[in-house]
Amino acid sequence: MMLNSSKANKSSKSLMRRFPIYLMMAPGLIYLLFNNYIPIAGLAIAFKDIDFRKGILKSDWIGYKNFEYLFKTKDALIITRNTLLYNAAFILLGIVFGVITALLLNEVSSKRLLKFFQTTILSPQLVSWIVVSYFVYALLSIDKGMINNRILPLLGIKEISWYTEPKYWPFIITIMQIWKTIGFNSIIYLATIVGISSDYYEAATLDGATRNQQIIHITLPLLVPTIITLFLIHVGRIFYADFGLFFQVPMNSGALFSTTNVIDTYVYRALLQIGDIGMSAAAGFYQSIVGFILIIISNLIIRKFNKENALF
């Protein structure tokens, strides 16, 4: 009895103590509830033939008909391939370059220089894809572009019609994506690195470890949980392509579709004129299901190897 009441006392005390924290959490939770959870019910639209006279709830169920257009042509294969391969490359290269940049930034001792570097690599993140697409256009335009006008003649290469040659675009798109996201990725890693206790490094220095050995045996292993968390977050969105990157940067050029068409751009082009809510909901549903399955699988794999690092 005594024990029980003291327990209750304690818990109510801690409740009082933590109440402000929960209060601070509330706006975020409410936002999540309204923005992310309640709309889940809207997935039903993907299986309905929307009729405004009947309203969304009473519209007819039509099974998988809304999904058919996604798989109608051979393009379905190209789109799926492009979406998955690009995103896989982005995740992999994003981790590699992000970690390398973070390690390099960590080595910069001058505070002012560090600020300068951080600002420089972070600034592309803040530029919208539309603006970026014009940067790229200024470089690649066939008549006026800098590469065709200045750089290629110097190398003695004939001008290239960039916007009609699909073979160059896997590289252009990957480079642009890495250039744009590297700052943000590296900052997350840098934050983890900065948070690593200096005790480890001191001990290692005492034992005579070189800088490289310290990085390989201390920094990288301690970075792994962060890397895995970011990896899982990205894998969950592997079937979502960045519309701005794939639509704006190639300037919607039809000749490039074999290497630039991804699921988001396909859906946009297919439904631009029809404007069918059911069909666009179907595309979103398909994307989230694939993402969901991939996240579960990769988490399972990670849990098998290293239980502590798994997300759930």
Partner: peptide, 21 residues
């Protein structure tokens, strides 16, 4: 176009690829 909207979506996608070119 209600009864052929699946085909229409796919055809529109093809048209966006070739038409301008």
């Amino acid at each position: 176009s209600e009864s052929v909207k699946t085909e229409l979506a796919a055809v529109n996608s093809v048209r966006s690829q070739y038409r301008m070119l």
